[in-house]
């Protein structure tokens, strides 16, 4: 087993363990903090795949904005945190069964695919994924339209969130 594989296994176990804590912890603030820890693990996974930009954006967007938003939302609904009562509905075993079945199905389907155990080629030296990504995002031949649509979506979400959460007295 090589060093890269050991690092991957450690990171993967850490990520999955944190993710399990997210869905099982009683205290919602702790669940949100475990989510932060999971997102860190995912960011490291991106870094292992030489996707530096995605890794850093993961930290900026998810931990800097989304996780903080979650913590705020948990605190704003503070009266209803209900740490003591059951955190899961009565069909929890059905949910667990569905989750396990989905994982088994995905694993079964993927294991039959020819590219499943493919090994990545080394990045060519001087390969600058950041500038390629920047060009792809604004090039009319590539992804400028999805990029613009995403910005419109964000604007709509901004307006929508303010409208929905606004407290009309």
């Amino acid at each position: 087993m090589t060093g890269a594989q050991i690092i991957f296994i450690v990171v993967a176990l850490y990520t999955l363990g944190s993710a399990l804590m997210v869905v099982t912890t009683r205290n919602l603030i702790h669940a949100a903090l475990w989510l932060v820890s999971t997102l860190f693990g995912v960011a490291v996974t991106y870094a292992l795949m030489n996707a530096n930009f995605i890794a850093v954006v993961q930290v900026v967007v998810y931990i800097g904005a989304i996780a903080i938003l979650f913590i705020f939302a948990v605190m704003l609904t503070r009266k209803d945190m209900r740490d003591s009562g059951p955190q899961m509905n009565k069909n929890w075993w059905l949910g667990a069964l569905v989750a396990v079945l989905v994982f088994a199905g995905l694993a079964f389907m993927l294991s039959g695919w020819s590219g499943f155990s493919k090994v990545a080629a080394d990045l060519p030296s001087g390969f600058d994924s950041v500038s390629l990504l920047g060009e792809a995002l604004v090039s009319p031949q590539a992804y400028v339209l999805p990029f613009e649509v995403a910005s419109v979506l964000l604007l709509a979400a901004l307006v929508g969130a303010v409208y929905v959460a606004f407290n009309r007295k």
Partner: peptide
Amino acid sequence: DLNVGVLFLIAAGAIGTLSIIMAGW
């Protein structure tokens, strides 16, 4: 020699934000 150094600055700031909300809560 990180090729996304500028974003790294903001990412570190995000961790600082997290630490403050953790301390406060």
